[in-house]
Design a binder for these strands. Structure first.
Length: 555
RNA sequence: AGUCCGAUGGUGUAACGGUAGCACCACAGUUUUUGGUACUGUUUGUCUAGGUUCGAAUCCUGGUCGGACUACCA
């Protein structure tokens, strides 16, 4: 079994490194989130990559929280991130925090000061920005750039001791204010923040910048392949510079293009805005591209992982069709979700030749895709609810459902023929009258009649009710971030439709949160986390493919 | 303007100097007691101009287009 599988560019690099004996063939990756938001599908890509690579090459993968900014970081986020990673099916080798290295990082800074490679700057944020220069103009050196090593040492010590207010002083690397890479123009290493840190408490009032923590953290952990997204490519020379000046383990960073999805936004800043401004109910709103949102929506973890693995990675800009993710969701759910019947937009159908008060218990298979899926009982009676769209007063030629004189199969039950229908004053159909064919019962059909269509139904006296929430894409345009104006101008106002009273078959009365079903012919649905036995709530995970709807659209 | 990155069907991703392939989408059909699933088939692509070579998506050069970078965020 030698399945020839092509390698992505990182796997090629790794296999080369192993072949050359680099790091004695050791592979160690890490997933380094900042705990200031919930994980989204882009992070899921990174998780699959880092953990997947470690697994494939018998290596290790750390989970490291890059918690260098106490102002935005919270324990709630740490917990949600850990939960999401586990749910996706991955387990980290070490749970670590950049804040674990604050002492080491401080020593690194002192080392650089002693080498004359770092200095304390009294300039304000505005002054630093103003002297930064631009892409076509070199920056200007700070007047504090040439302080003595002794003075820098003392000032930095005082910064640490809390002698100065926020923003009063910074520690900067002394590199080159004319460097074509703006990040090498004396970047900030430390800033003063008298803020409470979620892990170190009030021990520190100076905190390292991400750029002075990230690369060295990788180095401290002896990460062999530091994988991150493309926007950090300009930072690599800076990380390499720190590592070289400090003479520590040379982690090497590799960059890949971040994953984008159509009809959504992916930046944490924008997602946070949607949450804070109540455009969605929270980070786990089923419309959000977050891992927790997709979980609540009913996307199986395996579908997300398969999606990430199949789409793969590269270095070019991309925007993946949301439909591809939905394909893998359907592919998973098709195998695992039990089929049940629910009528979302009901109209009553009366079987005029069926005995009043009579009731039959029919047997329905749970899942034709699963031999061991078993079956359940479904009650049938004279009056049933059917889907309003399954009846047409004047049906077109290829309409294989109900209309005057037309016959359909009621799923798991009998063939019925439409004889007449009743309309109210406004012209709305209120009742459909049919006769059934007694010898056409499913499983023991001797009628010899073949009908093209089969529709789902729920018995009126036996029906239970539920709330159903239908979701559409969150944005009206493919790439809200690239449109003119504010991305929020493109929010789809109809992204959630609530159906307060939907008829469901009685077997669904006991459905528990997170349980998944296929509502026959309507789509995959998942019991919401807010659902109770008094009020059952279903989220529509994704619709079924609908060839008829497509046909109708074509006109 | 500078530095860096990238460019393969509608989308994503392979082909490592030797037949441009795979998945999704689209289209056509077969099966079907879900207009679902499954299965079969079809359309559509190497940004451009040169060069190297028997042979270039691949290597070289120029151009074009797209993206990133000028936060005491990460």
């Amino acid at each position: 079994m030698t399945e020839e599988k092509s390698l992505n560019f990182l796997e090629e690099i790794i296999e080369n490194d192993i072949a050359e004996g680099k790091n004695d063939g050791r592979i160690h990756t890490r997933f380094p989130p900042e705990p200031n938001g919930y994980l989204h599908i882009g992070h899921a890509s990174s998780i699959c990559l880092n953990f997947g690579l470690a697994k494939k090459y018998n290596g290790k993968c750390n989970l490291r929280f890059d918690d260098t900014n106490p102002v935005t970081e919270e324990t709630e986020y740490v917990e949600s991130i850990k939960n999401d990673i586990k749910w996706l099916g991955f387990q980290w080798d070490n749970e670590l925090y950049a804040s674990d290295y604050f002492d080491t990082l401080y020593d690194f800074a002192v080392t650089l000061i002693k080498k004359g490679l770092a200095y304390v700057d009294d300039s304000t944020a505005e002054e630093i920005a103003a002297t930064k220069g631009s892409t076509f103009e070199p920056g200007k050196e700070s007047p504090y750039r040439n302080r003595s090593i002794e003075e820098n040492l003392q000032l930095f010590e005082e910064m640490k001791a809390g002698k100065y207010k926020d923003g009063e002083k910074t520690l900067r690397a002394r590199i080159d204010m004319a460097h074509p890479n703006l990040l090498l123009r004396d970047p900030l290493m430390y800033r003063i923040k008298h803020a409470h840190h979620h892990r170190t408490g009030d021990k520190w009032c100076i905190y390292p910048m991400y750029d002075f923590a990230h690369g060295q953290s990788d180095s401290i952990e002896h990460i062999t392949h530091s994988i991150c997204t493309l926007e950090f490519i300009h930072h690599r020379p800076l990380y390499d510079w720190f590592i070289q000046q400090l003479g520590i383990f040379p982690s090497h960073q590799y960059e890949f293009a971040r994953r984008n999805l159509t009809y959504t936004v992916m930046s944490k800043r924008k997602l946070l805005q949607l949450v804070n401004e109540k455009h969605v109910s929270g980070w786990d709103d089923p419309r959000m591209p977050t891992v927790s949102g997709m979980r609540r929506r009913g996307y199986p973890a395996k579908a997300i992982v398969t999606f990430c693995d199949t789409v793969g990675i590269a270095k070019r800009e991309n925007i993946v069709d949301l439909g591809l993710l939905e394909f893998y969701v359907r592919e998973q759910l098709n195998k695992s979700a039990n089929r049940v019947m629910a009528v979302l937009d009901p109209v009553k159908l009366v079987i005029t030749n069926y005995e009043e008060g009579k009731e039959e218990i029919l047997t329905a298979e749970n899942n034709p895709e699963d031999e061991n899926g078993g079956s359940r009982s479904v009650p049938f009676s004279r009056e049933i609810w059917i889907e309003r769209e399954d009846f047409m007063e004047e049906p077109p030629k290829k309409f294989f459902r109900l209309g005057p004189g037309l016959m359909v199969r009621l799923k798991h039950a009998y063939i019925v023929k439409c004889d007449s229908f009743v309309k109210d004053d406004s012209g709305k159909v209120t009742e459909i009258h049919c006769t059934y064919i007694p010898e056409s019962r499913s499983g023991s059909d001797t009628s010899g009649i073949n009908v093209k269509g089969t529709i789902h139904w729920v018995s009126v006296p036996h029906a239970k009710t539920a709330e159903v929430r239908l979701y559409e894409r969150l944005f009206k345009v493919e790439d809200p971030g690239s449109e003119d104006g504010d991305f929020k101008d493109y929010i789809n106002p109809d992204s959630m439709q609530v159906l307060p009273k939907v008829y469901i078959e009685p077997s669904l009365a006991e459905a528990q949160p997170m349980q998944q079903f296929q509502f026959l012919r309507k789509g995959y649905f998942c019991v919401d986390t807010e659902s109770t036995s008094d009020k059952i709530i279903f989220n529509r995970t994704v619709t079924l493919k609908d060839a008829w709807a497509k046909e109708m659209k074509k006109g």
